[in-house]
Design a protein around this nucleic acid. Structure first.
Lengths: 152, 152
DNA sequence: CCTCCGAAGGTAAATAATGGTCAAAGTCAG
DNA sequence: CTGACTTTGACCATTATTTACCTTCGGAGG
């Protein structure tokens, strides 16, 4: 079995055991326990615990730091929002983003103020400092991140 | 639990107990009671009781010195949000952004789901495609954009 | 009054404890 | 053999704690 799969399995197990379904871990500790370099933990997190797969990750550096993984995906019958998260690729232009949000609002899947917030965050207006080539990637990531946050 | 968190919790408790909602303490005394060096109290104050988080601190040195921590109350209505927009510079790190949003939520100026959305949009998680040097600029722009959207 | 001393609190730098990023090198299925 | 996925390691960023030294205030003595 691949190392990454073992790490993923380990984290999944941690989440099942916790009563709140969250896994909180210390990167270096876990890396040591599983015999891998610390950065491999990051690799596993970014490749297997993405918003598309229904996970939200928070972390803190520094003394007493941690990584927390939360699952928001409902096991079956994916929520409509989750469906959108999966439908969005890794790139998204402003017009499409706007259409998606407006559609979610129309379907009453999100509130009006949520829609306003999301439109503001997805419009090119705020991306002045982001290189053009990266804007659509950022937009896609932002939309997915925000929708995932709404579900949990 | 981190020492700093214990200190912060202790101070929060003091504020809750006081009828005026203020906490007044003597640095050395508190340090002794919590088993830390006095300057750690300052660290906690500057890292967790900042103006962004809605606190004001006064203190006096010398005999009979003290430290007083107060929560500032923002007026209701839209103006506090506008005030926040104006107060945010053109660069904003993740920790400060989080503190600002959490404070807005605490003061009931934004809803819980708005806070969640904003936190998701302001966390570094979604910025993987944005060069490090631009992240704080983007974050500031995003926060201002989103708050402005809430106002209008 | 004025000075000086002791009792506070303040600051900054060093150190420790974590997690994050990036790119080179390796692996493996097709 | 090639492209996607993995694994590693060097280097970076953030947060916490400790230590040494500095500043301010009030009052006792002169």
């Amino acid at each position: 079995m691949r190392l990454s799969d073992e790490i993923a399995a380990y984290i999944l197990r941690m989440m099942e055991c916790a009563d709140d379904g969250e896994a909180e871990l210390r990167r270096n500790e876990l890396a040591e326990e599983l015999g891998c370099v610390p950065s491999q933990i990051n690799y596993v997190l970014t490749s297997r615990f993405t918003p598309e797969q229904g996970y939200v990750i928070e972390s803190r550096r520094g003394g007493g730091g941690y990584i927390r993984i939360r699952r928001v995906k409902l096991e079956r019958g994916m929520s409509p929002l989750m469906h959108t998260v999966n439908a969005v690729g890794n790139s998204l232009n402003a017009a499409t983003a706007q259409a998606i949000v407006q559609n979610l609002l129309y379907q009453q899947l999100i509130s009006k103020s949520s829609a306003r917030l999301m439109l503001a965050a997805l419009s090119d207006q705020a991306y002045r400092d982001v290189p053009m080539e990266q804007r659509d990637l950022l937009r896609a990531a932002l939309l997915k991140q925000m929708l995932t946050a709404l579900i949990s």
